[in-house]
Design a binder for these strands. Structure first.
Lengths: 239, 239
DNA sequence: GCAAAAGTGTTCGGACTACACCCATGT
DNA sequence: ACATGGGTGTAGTCCGAACACTTTTGC
């Protein structure tokens, strides 16, 4: 692209138009075996009281890809969260009165670790079950739908769902994570055989405590092993 | 997102900054069993004489997703081309002197059908082998690399490569398409068995003519059959 | 002892892999 | 007749699918 004003491009008009650009985040979390999305309620402006995805307008002195991390950090206090671009919304009339281009990211966070903060434009913040999202502003419902599709697509090939779990988790939690997000059921015996064989989980030697039934083993995700496998072209593939 | 000026967001600054937004297209074609990318040479401006990806600045009265089709149409005369977003480039310093956000699309075209047009900012246009891309402006080399990765990822699961072939093609062409793009070799017997069994190709009953060897059958892609399979959760999966 | 979830093994069928020769055509 | 790529079958192995009972723990 040619950023200089006397550039010549295929534009019919010879004038570069400026646009409003924003970032919206579909932040996923697991709570009570349900996939949830974090929503914020605007505390002023024409959208006062309405629910929406967390997001922000971009600034031209900040890398676009750093924006979702900043939104996440302000909202949850978390850093180093798993974030990925999945779409760009750019229809002329998607936002009333003005054209806004929005980069849509999804993020995966462990709901045990965050501490929600309101303020900075948000009157309220809450987790909502993905199957029970209220009417949101603009095309935010559509963005969530696409974000969920993107998450499902990726999760079938890469075990990114560990980002939603605590450091130590049981095989049952791991299986439920897949079942909840992908909306499928998996055969426990086959699932365990497969995961153990692949070797991407490490048995911590510890067991869960204070459960009124046989205490399950706790595992952690073996990121090193997984990265090594990936560099050899490996994919997990959950059906 | 809140487009009104008296909105309240998580921004530290309470002022919405406008940005320059462009679209760049990684246009793929197959020629002589090589994967090629279409490049344009700027005919004026500060980037005169330099090679780049075809693209354009966006206009606020046109849906973003319609932009790549317009670029394609102006450059090749083709409509209804397969186009897909694969990334957004948004680093502050990726373009000199000004921050530009670029939506990066890849497109697949059949190199038999198009007719290249220069003009509208392009002094010259050419196909370049993906393994032999010259130094391009800004981060365009990086964009091509990512576009190729995105194409490979998608091609392993969906037979979008037919977009690069003529309406009627041989099984060998079909196999070579996979081998060229994915940079792998496939066993001919196993490949044919698999493709025929899946039923996504239709034998046209015709044969190629004027070849100095046994004339191969010509097949067409059975889009209806494929769509039906997809709606049942089917994926092709080429390894 | 009972309720609740953890943990485990075998059989079957379908799919992928490896592999080599004859066929049809134009020159 | 020869050069060129087209087209085909079989055997072995691996992986996913189906399927039910015993174990451990807290109460």
């Amino acid at each position: 692209m040619l950023p200089d004003s006397n550039r010549s491009r295929t534009s019919v008009k010879n004038e570069v138009q400026l646009s409003t650009v924003s970032v919206d985040c579909v932040i996923f979390g697991l709570e009570a075996d349900a996939l949830k999305v974090l929503l914020v309620q605007h505390d002023s402006g024409v959208m006062e009281g309405q629910w929406a995805l967390p997001g922000d307008y971009i600034r031209n002195d900040i890398d676009l890809e750093k924006m979702p991390g900043m939104v996440l950090s302000q909202l949850t206090g978390l850093d180093n969260v798993f974030v990925e671009l999945f779409d760009v919304m750019g229809k002329v009339d998607r936002v009333s009165h003005q054209r806004v281009i929005t980069a849509a990211y999804f993020a995966l966070i462990n709901t045990e670790k965050y501490e929600l903060k309101t303020g900075l434009g948000a009157r309220d913040v809450k987790w909502v079950d993905i199957h029970n999202i209220p009417a949101l502003i603009y095309d935010h419902n559509e963005i969530i739908k696409r974000g969920h599709e993107a998450l499902k697509l990726k999760l079938r090939r890469e075990p990114i769902g560990v980002e939603l779990l605590p450091k130590l988790f049981t095989l049952t939690q791991f299986q439920r994570m897949y079942e909840t997000i992908l909306d499928i059921t998996l055969d426990t015996r086959n699932f365990r055989k497969k995961i153990i064989k692949e070797g991407i989980l490490q048995d911590s030697g510890q067991k869960e405590v204070n459960v009124p039934y046989r205490a399950p083993n706790l595992y952690s995700f073996d990121a090193e092993k997984y990265d090594e496998l990936r560099s050899q072209g490996y994919f997990l593939n959950i059906y």
